[in-house]
Design a protein around this nucleic acid. Structure first.
Length: 151
DNA sequence: GCCAACGTTGGC
DNA sequence: GCCAACGTTGGC
């Protein structure tokens, strides 16, 4: 099983929204690196750390698991949709999504500030490529974050 | 709201 | 295939 971090701006889609939906398709990824993780690497039952970005105190807020592997992001060929891409089509989809299911809120929110202060987490992509919205997390990193959230 | 970092686009 | 211009992300 692998671990991932998914970012979302709470003003777009918060963990609270997600909890009330129970499940969601992770649509709208329009970055090739993130797309490749979705298409090639994210597997059923992988665990997702849900991160709130682009707010005053960015933080990890909850856990989810993958319940459906990559399938084409059909919004990408819907002209009405915000994430429409001229170059994507049903015959040749450029973008993909996975479905995830909410597991639970973390016992306690873990702030970016705390992650930065923890030397063992200094290699996290979160701290080194701040723009990647889907990123792998090492098991040891994930375990430490869970531990932090339980304290 | 600013702006650094980084990804994408397109002219050459 | 280079790289300037431009757009977006996201921390602050």
């Amino acid at each position: 099983m692998n671990y991932w971090l998914f970012k979302s701006e709470p003003s777009d889609y918060s963990f609270e929204n997600f909890i009330s939906d129970k499940e969601t398709c992770w649509e709208g990824i329009r970055n090739y690196q993130a797309r490749n993780f979705i298409r090639d690497d994210i597997k059923i039952n992988d665990e997702v750390l849900f991160y709130h970005s682009n707010i005053s105190e960015p933080h990890l807020v909850g856990l989810a698991k993958v319940i459906r592997e990559a399938y084409p992001d059909h919004y990408s060929w819907n002209k009405e949709h915000k994430y429409y891409d001229l170059k994507s089509s049903p015959d040749n989809p450029r973008w993909f999504m996975v479905d995830i299911k909410a597991i639970k809120e973390l016992k306690r929110i873990v702030y970016l500030k705390e992650i930065k202060q923890e030397p063992k987490l200094s290699k996290m992509i979160l701290l080194n490529n701040s723009r990647l919205s889907i990123q792998p997390v090492k098991k040891c990193e994930r375990d430490l974050i869970i531990k932090m959230s339980n304290n």
